[in-house]
Computed example of a mutant assay.
Amino acid sequence: MTDILFYHLTESTLENALPGLVERSLERKWRVVIQTGSEERRDSLDNHLWTWSDASFLAHATDQEPYPEEQPVILTTGNGNPNGATVRFVVDGAEPVNVEAYERLVLMFDGHDQHQLEQARTQWKSLKAQGHTLTYWQQNAEGRWEKKA
């Protein structure tokens, strides 16, 4: 059964929160696919992941580059799993598909964006109605994740 986690961004941006979560996934030897809502967002995150930290970078590629199956992290706008990932991050209101194909599905949404909030609520109801077990995490004032449901 797929672990489905909703991450509610309230204190930081996706650009600040996502790299740390991806790093932790890689530390667990999981391959990662990140699904964005647009090509522009995919390309923006692609650039960001190379430079997000002075001490580190995340090796990755987009689904537009050759040999995606060799990459630990793939950024995509599509529904495929070109690198055989076990974890899928879904951001910017993108729609997850093939939920059961992953060990973990992480839906991240911006708490300051009304459209993303509404979409997350709709996704929660839909996945719950399908019988999935869901957890909800929200950032506290310090930007740390707290399990709320």
Rank of each mutant, 00 (worst) to 15 (best):
T2C: 07
T2N: 07
D3G: 09
I4M: 05
I4W: 02
I4E: 09
L5T: 10
F6D: 02
F6P: 08
Y7H: 11
H8G: 04
H8K: 08
L9K: 00
E11P: 03
T13N: 06
L14R: 03
N16A: 15
V22L: 08
E23Y: 10
S25T: 05
S25L: 02
R28A: 15
K29H: 13
K29F: 11
R31G: 13
V32L: 05
V33W: 01
V33D: 10
V33P: 12
V33C: 10
V33T: 14
Q35P: 04
Q35V: 11
T36V: 11
T36P: 06
G37F: 02
R41F: 07
R41T: 10
R42M: 15
L45P: 03
D46Q: 09
D46I: 00
H48M: 11
H48S: 13
L49K: 02
W50M: 12
W50T: 09
W50Q: 07
W50C: 12
S53M: 04
S53N: 13
D54W: 10
F57Y: 13
F57K: 06
F57Q: 09
L58W: 07
L58T: 11
H60C: 02
H60A: 04
A61S: 14
T62F: 00
T62D: 06
E65I: 05
E65G: 02
P66L: 09
P68M: 08
P68R: 01
E69D: 15
E70N: 12
Q71P: 00
I74D: 01
L75K: 00
T76V: 12
T76P: 03
G78C: 06
G80R: 03
P82G: 08
A85D: 11
A85V: 05
A85R: 01
A85E: 06
V87H: 03
R88T: 08
R88D: 08
R88N: 15
F89D: 02
F89K: 01
V90L: 05
V90T: 07
V91T: 12
G93C: 00
E95R: 05
E95C: 06
E95W: 10
V97S: 13
N98V: 05
V99D: 07
V99H: 01
V99P: 07
V99S: 02
E100F: 08
E100P: 03
Y102F: 15
Y102N: 01
F109N: 04
F109Y: 15
F109C: 02
D110C: 06
D110V: 12
H112G: 14
H112P: 00
Q114S: 15
Q114G: 08
H115S: 13
L117P: 01
Q119M: 06
A120N: 05
T122A: 11
T122G: 09
Q123Y: 10
W124Q: 08
S126M: 12
L127W: 03
Q130T: 10
T133L: 13
T133N: 12
T133H: 12
T135G: 13
Y136H: 15
W137V: 06
Q138N: 10
Q138F: 07
Q139A: 08
Q139T: 06
A141K: 13
E142G: 04
R144M: 04
W145K: 00
E146N: 11
K147A: 07
K148T: 14
A149T: 04
A149N: 15
